[in-house]
Amino acid sequence: MTSTAQASAGAPAATGQARAALPGAWRIGLSRGAVELRAFFRERQSVVFILAMPAVMLVLLGAIFSRPHQSAPAISVSDLYVAGLIGGGVMATSYQNLGMSIALERERFTLKRLRGTPMPAAAYFIGKIIQVLVAALAEVAILLAIGVAFYHLRLPAAVSAWWTFTWVFGLGVAACSLLGIAASSVPRSAARNGIAVITLPFMVLQFISGVYVPIFLVPRWLRDIAAVFPLEWMCRGMRSVFVPQAVVLEPGHSFQLGQTALVLAAWLVAGLVLCLTTFRWQNRQAG
């Protein structure tokens, strides 16, 4: 340290060997999480299309299909919608949210800029996890509040039901987040074809997995397709928690929770592998 140390007008004292230690990944990750949350809740786009959309759908669909369906007179259709939209809302706040936002961040060089700083990659993902968890829990709370306030939804009292909710929610958020991160690499331009590549498949899944249409009205062959993807299993898990009496509508009169855990765990592993092999900090065409 010769030439830089002597000329210190305006520069801070700590240069060269006197540098303080680098802040850790967790500390920077918490700072990322705070910024991610502010950005998410201040952005009209994400609040309206991700957070408010399932709530609006619940109010609408619950009002339109207020009477029980003839095939299951004991089951309130609005309760089915609460469970289904919780599944859909969890996927919206994880998969759709991360898929679109990371594609945009890559396109607008946010990721490139972050990569040029000493921020560790882990801190970036810690920030995303914090943001997704808070948004997903807020989504669930909003939907449950609407269900309780307008549609006589009764929250389960049993600890076992809340345990089921916890693991279905946790596995669902984790798997769908990883799939969203992987999907963010697919569109060539987030602004131009992000909706077609990321949002459209999710829309289709919501129709065939029991989110927008009660699952017992979905034809068998579409249900078989839906059963390949995580959303159908998340909705099924949520029905077992919030509409346990709907078990009579399930195939084999069972929610098949064991299989739910297996399918979600498999998607989690697949999503992780996809992320590790495809994640890029810059666009392909960046020259």
């Binding site: 240069t15 540098r19 230690a21 802040p23 700072s31 910024v35 950005a39 607008r108 946010t110 921020m119």
Partner: peptide, 24 residues
Amino acid sequence: QGAADQPELTVAELVGHFASFYPS
């Protein structure tokens, strides 16, 4: 180029956030 990628943060928030990445 392109700081507009965090449009909803304030200038002070964004600069303060980037400061949190560095040791000094």
